[in-house]
Amino acid sequence: MRSIDEVVIEFRDACVQLGGHTIWSGLSLEIKRGEFAAILGPNGVGKSTLIKVALGMTGLHFGEVRVLGAAPGRHQGEIGYLPQRRSFDPSLHIRGFDIVRLGLDGARWGLPLPMRRNRAREQRRIDDVIELVGASDYADRSIGQLSGGEQQRLLIAQALVQRPEILFLDEPLDSLDLPNQGAISSLIHHVSTVEGVTVVMVAHDVNPILAYLDRVIYIGPGGAVSGTAHEVITTENLSRLFKTPIEVLTTSDGRLVVVGQPEAPAHHSDRHEHGAATMLHAEHPHHHGDGTSH
């Protein structure tokens, strides 16, 4: 999967405090170029904070973090970011194409210069990336009028359009229905291989993405663990992280099942996967209603 063993994101003994309250501490992890990494864990443990630290939007209390070999916030042009789900106001009359275009030139000061060749090349890049995420049919419609899944595809295109080295996605599957969760997961995997992007994704439901994951960072109230899915998701690790007995079982067809995982009180009362057992499809990569293979 990984061509070069170059570390693009590194946390060493990192600690974040917000308002005098320690979010997490002693966090160490490495993510290598081209990897698909997931940050997992219950609500409120600081998964989004980890991404914000890597983006340079939140500072560390102590410890060290390096992104693309420099302090966070140094390589803004090489990083794509999808913040936690916000849907656009239905009355926002801006077409999807212009939303994607902002990813390319939204941070540029000054008037767009009428340099034909550049403009044509940018136009082509925008068209290409919109096609890559499968949004060509509705990129001309107002973003506020589109469904959650359609908006998410265009936002992924916006994050990808300037050819980033790393893509940070904060709960991109949240508030999507089940078929869309599968389709967007598969899309993210697809674009990360096509574009050669390192993907770091926050999720609290591992099911739709486990088949694609190279690395898992599990944050719990008792600390954090980083490694491959099979290294991290074990009875010992999870019991220690959640400070409560948790069992990880393997079913006869090779899937992992986590039993007794305490779900933090969710803000999302409409979520569907609550229950005592969370299924982790680890062994057989299978596709969930892939809507992107065309």
């Binding site: 939007m57 803004q76 656009f88 801006i94 902002l102 941070a107 767009p112 916006q158």
Partner: peptide, 23 residues
């Protein structure tokens, strides 16, 4: 406005992403 135009549009539509891009 000519100077700020595009960053202002970005910040108006999507403040979080705009600030992550250093605006």
């Amino acid at each position: 406005l000519g100077t700020l135009g595009r960053p202002l549009l970005f910040a108006s539509i999507d403040g979080d992403v705009a600030s992550a891009r250093g605006l």
